[in-house]
């Protein structure tokens, strides 16, 4: 990263104003649209500023894992489409796309936001498999948060398909929704110099020393964390970032209610 540009941004952050006029704790404009795909059982499109992701949820019936015979299965995948950034190329999943999938997955899984026991059809034989697919349409920074928000919105949008004679009829949807118990929201906080910001643009992401994504639930408990970036952070940094993240996730959660 270019030192001159970076020190300039850090100086501006010291005055409390970012490159696009926002304060350090402001998100850009967020829009959440549900039901954008007619073929997925649940879907959502999330825009944070110019960053845009689409999430689709597909349901299928599968054998449960042998060590969890009475639980449904949740899988999260991410595709960083080449059209969303000059940095992305088509091909097998990159480290970054796997990280985004894992962080989003962890938030959903560890919070037990989906009641997986309620997804069991016949123990040991048949359970619902919930596949969450995140696709980026445009990357202007903060894909992590957009992915987390999009995944939840898409899961909220799901209507279970009809099951007839042990076969899934995808052409007919029931009114049954997924058993969602919690809404875990991921908020990524970046450390740039000595300042902490949320919702970075891609210009800001390039200048960051480190980032910490914290996924938290309604009661303020944390269910997932992921640190990224080359630089180290102190224990005090972690405290500050957690504080900021939980505060912002409460605000974001209201958009889903």
């Amino acid at each position: 990263m270019n030192k001159g540009l970076k020190s300039h941004i850090i100086k501006s952050l010291g005055t409390g104003i970012r490159g696009d006029g926002r304060s350090l704790e402001d998100y850009r404009e967020i829009t959440i649209e549900k039901g954008v795909s007619s073929t997925a059982e649940g879907s959502a499109r999330v825009k944070i500023g110019d960053t845009e992701v689409i999430v689709g949820v597909k349901l299928s019936i599968d054998k449960p894992f042998s060590d969890r015979p009475d639980e449904g299965i949740v899988m999260v995948g991410t595709e960083l489409l080449a059209m969303s950034s000059p940095e992305f190329e088509s091909g097998p999943p990159s480290i970054w796309s796997i990280e985004i999938a894992r962080v989003t997955d962890r938030g959903i899984r560890e919070s037990k936001s989906i009641d997986v026991k309620a997804l069991c059809i016949t123990p040991g034989e048949k359970v619902w498999l919930v596949s969450v697919d995140i696709c980026t349409l445009n990357d202007d920074g903060n894909i992590l948060d957009a992915a987390s928000l999009g995944a939840l919105a898409a899961l909220q949008d799901v209507r279970l398909p009809k099951v007839e004679d042990n076969l899934v009829n995808y052409k007919e949807k029931t009114d049954e929704k997924l058993p969602l118990q919690k809404l875990p929201i991921g908020v990524t906080v970046l450390k740039v110099g000595n300042e902490f910001i949320v919702d970075p643009t891609s210009e800001e992401e390039k200048m960051a020393d480190s980032r910490l994504t914290i996924t938290s639930m309604e009661d303020g408990h944390i269910c997932a964390m992921q640190k990224g970036g080359d630089a180290q952070i102190t224990a005090e940094d972690v405290e500050k970032m957690v504080e900021l993240s939980i505060k912002k996730s409460a605000e974001l959660r209201r958009l889903l209610e």
């Binding site: 005055t15 104003i17 970012r18 490159g19 696009d20 006029g21």
Partner: peptide
């Protein structure tokens, strides 16, 4: 672009 403060840079941009 370089200004003395972020607001003037933002206006220029």
């Amino acid at each position: 672009i370089k200004g003395n403060d972020p607001k003037s840079e933002l206006l220029a941009i």
